[in-house]
Every structure is written in structure tokens, then in C-alpha cells.
Simulated assay, not measured.
Amino acid sequence: MKFEVSKEAAEWYKNEMGLKQGDYVQYYVKLYGGIPTVHPNYSLGVSIGKEGNIAIKDEVEGITFYFNDGNSWFLKEFDMKVVLEKEELDFIFHKKQII
């Protein structure tokens, strides 16, 4: 599993959520509603702060973006990249190839 947040997406989060250096942004799994994903009936939510043990992270522009242990299953078979496209966040999922 690979998780990446682009510099432009990190700047978007900083501006929209009033984040500063050292802050944490957690992605968590939700049933329905929220950021659409590759998992049917599941979506992603986002919150500010550090909760639980960090399982996978990307540190960009002084901000730590992460999934904790309880939600890391979400990326087990996928790589996820958060990018900014036309001033909107886009969540790109790629299924990992098993060799």
C-alpha cells in the first residue's frame, strides 16, 4: 500500500482547514457519504488531530496526513494519491498488481 498527498493538495488543506506546521490530518473509513472510494458502500472522512497509532502516512508541507491502524485495511490492496485538479481535491486509487 502506498499513500501520497501532493504538495498542491497539502496547500489546499492548509488554506481550507487553517492548518499549520505540525498538524495532523486523519483519513478514516465511513459507511456511505463523504469522499467516494473504490470500496462499494464505503467512503472517507477527514478530521484534524492525531488519534490512535499511525499505520501509514505522508508528511507534506509540515502536515502529517495519515490512516491509523483501525483504518489501514482500506489501502491494503490499493495505492492512494490525493491531488488537486482544477482547484478541487481528487482521490486517485490504483489497485496494486500482485506479481
Rank of each mutant, 00 (worst) to 15 (best):
K2S: 09
E4Q: 11
V5D: 08
S6C: 06
S6A: 13
S6M: 07
E8S: 15
E11Q: 14
W12G: 08
W12N: 03
Y13A: 15
Y13M: 14
K14H: 04
K14F: 07
N15C: 00
N15W: 03
E16L: 00
E16D: 06
K20Q: 13
G22Y: 03
D23W: 02
Y24E: 08
Q26W: 09
Q26I: 03
Y28W: 15
V29M: 01
K30C: 06
Y32C: 04
G34P: 09
G34M: 12
P36C: 09
P36M: 11
T37K: 04
V38Q: 11
V38D: 06
H39D: 03
P40F: 03
N41R: 05
Y42S: 01
S43V: 12
L44K: 06
L44D: 02
G45F: 13
V46G: 01
G49S: 07
G49L: 03
E51L: 01
G52I: 04
N53H: 12
I54V: 13
A55L: 11
A55N: 05
I56R: 13
K57S: 09
K57E: 14
K57Y: 04
K57W: 09
V60M: 02
V60G: 01
E61P: 12
E61K: 12
G62K: 05
G62F: 07
I63E: 00
I63V: 15
T64V: 15
T64L: 12
Y66L: 07
F67A: 04
F67D: 02
N68I: 04
N68H: 12
N68R: 14
N71S: 10
N71Q: 09
S72M: 10
W73S: 06
W73C: 07
F74R: 02
L75E: 10
K76M: 11
E77Y: 14
E77P: 02
E77I: 01
F78H: 12
F78S: 00
V82I: 15
V82R: 00
V82D: 01
V83S: 04
V83L: 12
L84I: 12
L84D: 10
E85L: 13
E85H: 09
K86H: 15
K86M: 12
E88F: 14
D90W: 13
F91S: 00
F91K: 03
I92V: 14
F93K: 04
F93H: 07
F93M: 01
H94F: 05
K95Q: 14
Q97H: 02
Q97L: 11
I98W: 08
I99P: 14
